[in-house]
Design a protein around this nucleic acid. Structure first.
Length: 192
DNA sequence: CGATTTTGACCTGCGC
DNA sequence: GCGCAGGTCAAAATCG
């Protein structure tokens, strides 16, 4: 699949902790995620803050992982934190973004290998693998069951190659932590 | 013509 | 053991 000309997602790599970091490095920050949390609990645990750059561009930074949020979410939803597959071997991170496009251009090239309808959701879930030879990173993409304007993306694994990261965007983007937290969406359109 | 997408079949884990 | 749901495979179709 080709990269969109005007992706609705925007990650400014200048905001990463070091300039050589890739988007996947960003996603795998600080030892996150824990091995056996549900997707929704993982996403609920993410907090994002907004950061500006000297050239006027915008970006989002993941700022904290709140285990209390995870526990609260699991308790509220009756989620069994131990039922997830993977046995702690996977390196997975999930987040939710507001976008008309389902495919975030993260600099890597993905090959779609599956599509499944999801129970209690009108939207199908799409499965992608990194098309780079020998790289086994997978990505799941699905729309929020309650608000189709949000896209839930889950990465699993770590790339064993460099990303030709370089993207741009003119459209606004919202990062919206889900779960019991009452935090509002964080909008990149906010004045910096 | 090679790469990618589509899509039905198949596999696996889990709850009952 | 059975059925359900999620995840993967692979052949065919499509695209560039």
């Amino acid at each position: 699949m080709n990269s969109p000309q005007n992706p609705s997602f925007f990650f400014d790599h200048h905001q990463f902790q070091d300039s050589s970091s890739s988007f996947m490095d960003f996603l795998n920050f600080s030892g996150y995620p824990p091995p056996d949390f549900s997707l929704e609990a993982e996403t609920a645990a993410l907090s994002f803050s907004e950061a500006g750059t000297s050239d006027g561009s915008r970006s989002m930074e993941a700022t904290s992982i709140d285990n209390n949020t995870i526990d609260g979410w699991c308790e509220a939803k009756g989620v069994n934190r131990k039922k997830e597959k993977g046995g702690g071997c996977s390196n997975r991170v999930a987040f939710i973004t507001k976008s008309e496009l389902e495919i975030m251009d993260d600099g890597f090239k993905w090959r779609k290998y599956g599509k499944k309808s999801v129970k209690n959701s009108p939207h199908p879930r799409n499965y992608y693998k990194c098309s780079s030879g020998g790289c086994g990173v997978k990505k799941r993409v699905e729309r929020d069951r309650d608000d189709s304007s949000y896209v839930i993306t889950t990465y699993e694994g770590v790339h064993n190659h460099e990303s030709p990261f370089s993207k741009y965007c003119n459209d606004p983007i919202l990062f919206h932590p889900i779960g019991p937290s009452s935090s509002p969406p964080y909008s990149s359109t906010t004045t910096l």
